[in-house]
Design a protein around this nucleic acid. Structure first.
Length: 243
DNA sequence: CAGCTGATTTCCT
DNA sequence: GGAAATCAGCTGG
């Protein structure tokens, strides 16, 4: 079932841990792709130096200050999208970044989107030329299948998530983008036993890098590799050198 | 396999 | 002006 809004009306740390194993799905005219979440990170809004909301509200992050259970989608590095789910009541800005998962439905469509160069290529009009990449799913257990939604930008690409979905209500079963609870064990009348969860520092951030606010399913191959923040030498300006 | 670099644009200082 | 919650491709060991 679709996760109720009260699920998200809690601190991001709690929501993050319980989102593991839940399923994010996006339905478009192209079809449905569903991803079982294996890796997430909590961001504590204005109290968290690593959060986009740390310096207050802006055009980009406005959705984070809204009601819980909505998607905050941002664009970064000039080419990638990443998706968060907003937590806590309206007026606060915490959220959970979805960093990785396993594609459990629509793997063929996901693979097609992932191989479209760039990932920024706008929605192609239906019938706008043949799709040369084929529509067969990657071989089960292959590296390609594992990498379909491994990493926040790849997850968005596999699901076809762009800025157009910023603000989407993931608690509405009629929404194109929604989140289902982890599989239900009908025999035990409860959620399946939680797999082992690991936690550690968040990936690729410079501020508050010590807070262990990243959660993942222990041993799951669809969890992205940890990478500490690495400052990069700014690129030489492209100007003809004098003399 | 680890490590580095280019791509490319939005956002904030 | 510069860094960014990233990724893919290439290099060298």
């Amino acid at each position: 079932m679709t996760l109720p809004r009260v699920f998200f009306a809690r601190p991001a740390l709690q929501v993050a841990e319980q989102l593991l194993g839940c399923v994010l799905e996006h339905e478009t005219v192209e079809g449905l792709v569903a991803v079982r979440l294996s890796e997430v990170e909590a961001y504590d809004g204005e109290a968290d130096p690593a959060s986009h909301a740390y310096r207050g509200r802006s055009g980009r992050n406005a959705v984070m200050f809204g009601p819980p259970g909505h998607a905050y989608v941002y664009f970064t590095y000039g080419m990638h999208f990443c998706v968060n789910l907003v937590c806590l009541p309206e007026g606060t800005a915490s959220a959970v970044l979805l960093r990785g998962g396993r594609v459990i439905s629509g793997a063929g469509l996901a693979a097609r989107r992932r191989s479209r160069s760039g990932g920024l290529v706008g929605e192609r009009a239906p019938g706008n030329g043949p799709d040369l990449t084929g529509d067969s799913a990657p071989r089960a257990g292959s590296a390609k299948e594992r990498d379909l939604a491994r990493g926040p930008a790849r997850l968005c690409q596999a699901l076809g998530i762009t800025r157009g979905l910023d603000g989407a209500d993931v608690c509405d079963p009629a929404s194109p983008l929604r989140v289902r609870s982890a599989e239900w064990d009908s025999r035990a009348e409860g959620p399946l036993p939680a797999p082992t969860i690991s936690r550690g520092p968040r990936v690729g951030i410079s501020a508050a890098a010590d807070r262990p606010w990243r959660f993942w399913l222990t041993g799951d191959p669809t969890v992205s590799v940890y990478r500490p923040h690495a400052p990069r030498r700014s690129r030489q300006k492209l100007v003809s050198a004098p003399e």
